[in-house]
Design a protein around this nucleic acid. Structure first.
Lengths: 317, 317
DNA sequence: TCCCAGCCTGTGAACGTGCACAGGCTATGC
DNA sequence: GCATAGCCTGTGCACGTTCACAGGCTGGGA
C-alpha cells in the first residue's frame, strides 16, 4: 500500500478502487492513524484554520455579551468544516504588530474581523495583502473591497422608533452608541430618519455601549429634557442602565417612559421590566461570516450580506 | 550564509558571531522573512499552540460573562509568549469525539479546560493520554494527577456569610449553584460550614447559575421561608434575578433583605442596588493557568493553585 | 493482433525547518 | 612545533504530507 493511495482515499477518494479504500480505512482504524496537519499545511500552503480577530479594547469585552455568542457560533461553524478557529487579540499597537506578522506569514487562511472601529488600520492592511477577510459590521473609513455581514442597523432603529411612536409616544429620546462604530452611527441615523421633522438634537445623548456610559447618558437626558416619554438605547447594556436611572428618578417603565434596546442579548429578558429590543440573529451572522470567508478563500470575490433585525416586544415598551 | 546559522540566530543565538547575527537580522528585515511555523512544528513535534476547551453547554455561555474574561486573559497571556490560542468546543458527543482526535493527534501542546462538570470524560482521557492539561476549578469526579487553578470557593462563601451575619442578619438563605460543579458544591459547603448549628435546609434553593433558575429559586425561597433577611447567591447572575424577585415582592434591598453574590462579574456594579459580592481574580486565574500549563509542557509534574476571593462591599449587603 | 483510452497504483520531488555532526579556524599551553 | 580546547559555520538527514508523473492493467474497437 503506497502513500499516494492513502493520500487519495483521505482527500476525496477519486480514482481509487473499492478494495483499496476499505483496506486503507481499516488500517486507519486499527492503527489509530491521524493525519499530521503541519506536514499537510507545509506542502499545500494552506493552514486549515481561520482567525477570530478582536480589535476591541479590553474593557468592552467584559460588558458586551455579544462577543461570546458570536465566538461560539463561529467556532461551531468552523469546526463543522474540519477547520480550526484561533483567537487573536489586537487591542494595543504591539499586539496589532504581532497579529500582522502572524497573519502575514500565512499562518491562517482568513480572518474574521470583529467589531472594528472607524479607520481600523488592520482592515485595510489585510485587504491590501490579499488576505481573505470578513468584517462583522460595515467597516467604517475603508472603501476598498472587503466582505462584511451586518444587521440592517438603520432599518432596525427605524422599526423600534416606529414601534414607540405607534404606542403613542411623542417625545422619544435616544442613547446613541459610539459614532466611530457602524452600530452607533447607523442606529442613530435610523432614529433620525424615522423621526423626520420631529427630530430634536436635545433628545440625543451619546454612550460607548458600556453600562456606565448608559447611566451617564440617561442622567443627562433627564436633566435636559425631563418631559421625555420614551428612550431608544443603541444597546441592551445601555438600556439596562437607563432602566435603573429612570426608576431612581421616580418614573415608571413603561407607564411613564417606554424603553427600547438593541441586540437582544441574554440580558434583555432578565431585566426589570423585561426589555423590548431589536433581535440580532447572532447565530446566523456567525455562520454567514464563516461561509463568506470560505467562499473568499476558495477564490470568490468579496461579497456582503445584510440581515434584518426583528422587533421583540416585551414589557418595557 | 547557511541555513544552520540562520536557524541558530533565530532560536536563542548561542555560538554565533556578532557579525553573523547582525547580517542575518539585517537580511530578515530587508527580505521580510517569516519563519514557517508548520515546518518548524513538523520537525520539532511541538505546535506552539494551546487549546481553550469549552465543555459547557451552549446556553450557559450566553449568560455567563466570566468566560469572555477568562478567554481574553488567556489569549493575551499566550500571545505574550509567542504562542497561539485556539478555541475548541465540546458540548455534544460528536464534538467531544472531534476534539479528542484533534488533540490526540498532537495538534496542540496542551489544553486549558474550562468549567467542566462532574465526571467530564475528556479530563480523564486527556490525563491518561499524557496531554498537559490545566482545569479551571477543581475537576469533580476525577482523582488522577491533573493541574487546576481555583478560587477558594468554600472560604469565599464563608466570608460572605460571615459578612451577612456581622451586619446583623439572622435568617440567611442561599441560592446554590449546580451541584455537579465545583463552584456550586463548595460554595454551598462553605455556607453550611459558616452557619454551623444554625444551618437549616429549608433556607437552601438550587439553581444552575442561569438567570431563569435564579428567578425560580428566589421565588421558591420566599414561599418557603418568607421571613428570610438575607440571601447569598452562588453567582452574580442569580443574585441579579433575586434582586428583581425581591423588589416585586415588596421587599427593599438592603433594608429588608441583604443580597450577596459571587464572581464580581461586570454585571455586579451595574445592578440596582449595586451588588456586594466575592471578587474572583479572573485575570490572575487565566495567567496562572497558562503558566502552569507551560510548566507542564516543559516537563514539570501537575501542580495546583488556590486563590483567595475578596469581599467587595457595595450597597446590597 | 494491436492500439488506445480509462482506471488505478507506485514513486520521486518538494514544502521549510531543526538537529546532530563534521570540520575549520584561533588562541593557549606544553 | 604540535596538540588541544573553544568557538563558529556548513551540510546531510529527517519530519509527514501532497502533487505530478510514469507506468501497469483491463477492456473495447479497428
Amino acid at each position: 500500500m503506497s502513500r499516494g493511495t492513502v493520500s487519495r482515499v483521505i482527500n476525496g477518494g477519486h480514482w481509487v478502487s473499492e478494495d483499496a479504500r476499505v483496506a486503507v480505512e481499516e488500517a486507519i482504524r486499527t492503527t489509530g492513524y491521524r493525519t499530521n496537519h503541519h506536514a499537510r499545511s507545509l506542502v499545500t500552503g494552506r493552514s486549515n484554520s481561520i482567525a477570530f480577530l478582536l480589535t476591541e479594547p479590553q474593557r468592552l469585552l467584559f460588558t458586551d455579551p455579544n462577543f461570546s455568542i458570536l465566538l461560539r457560533g463561529a467556532a461551531a461553524a468552523v469546526a463543522h468544516r474540519g477547520m480550526t478557529l484561533l483567537l487573536l487579540v489586537a487591542g494595543t499597537a504591539a499586539e496589532r504588530e504581532n497579529v500582522a506578522s502572524y497573519v502575514g506569514a500565512g499562518h491562517v487562511d482568513g480572518v474574521l474581523m470583529i467589531s472594528s472601529h472607524e479607520n481600523e488600520p488592520l482592515i485595510g492592511w489585510l485587504s491590501d495583502q490579499g488576505i481573505p477577510t470578513v468584517s462583522c459590521g460595515i467597516p467604517l473609513g475603508y472603501d476598498g473591497p472587503v466582505s462584511w455581514v451586518s444587521v440592517d442597523e438603520a432599518g432596525g432603529a427605524r422599526t423600534m422608533v416606529r414601534h414607540l411612536r405607534e404606542s403613542g409616544r411623542r417625545r422619544i429620546a435616544t442613547i446613541a452608541g459610539p459614532q466611530d462604530t457602524p452600530g452607533g452611527r447607523y442606529r442613530l441615523e435610523g432614529y433620525r430618519a424615522e423621526l423626520g421633522d420631529l427630530y430634536d438634537e436635545r433628545y440625543v445623548a451619546y454612550g460607548d455601549y458600556s453600562s456606565e456610559s448608559g447611566h451617564a447618558a440617561m442622567t443627562e437626558l433627564l436633566e435636559r429634557v425631563p418631559d421625555l416619554d420614551a428612550v431608544f438605547a443603541a444597546s441592551d447594556t445601555m438600556a439596562a442602565s437607563a432602566l435603573v436611572v429612570l426608576r431612581h428618578s421616580g418614573r415608571r417603565v413603561p407607564e411613564d417612559v417606554a424603553v427600547g434596546g438593541f441586540d437582544d442579548s441574554g440580558l434583555a429578558e432578565t431585566l426589570d421590566p423585561p426589555l423590548s429590543t431589536m433581535h440580532q440573529p447572532f447565530d446566523r451572522i456567525s455562520a454567514e461570516m464563516v461561509d463568506l470567508l470560505l467562499d473568499q478563500i476558495a477564490g470568490t470575490p468579496p461579497k456582503s450580506v445584510t440581515m434584518r433585525a426583528e422587533l421583540v416586544v416585551r414589557a418595557s415598551a
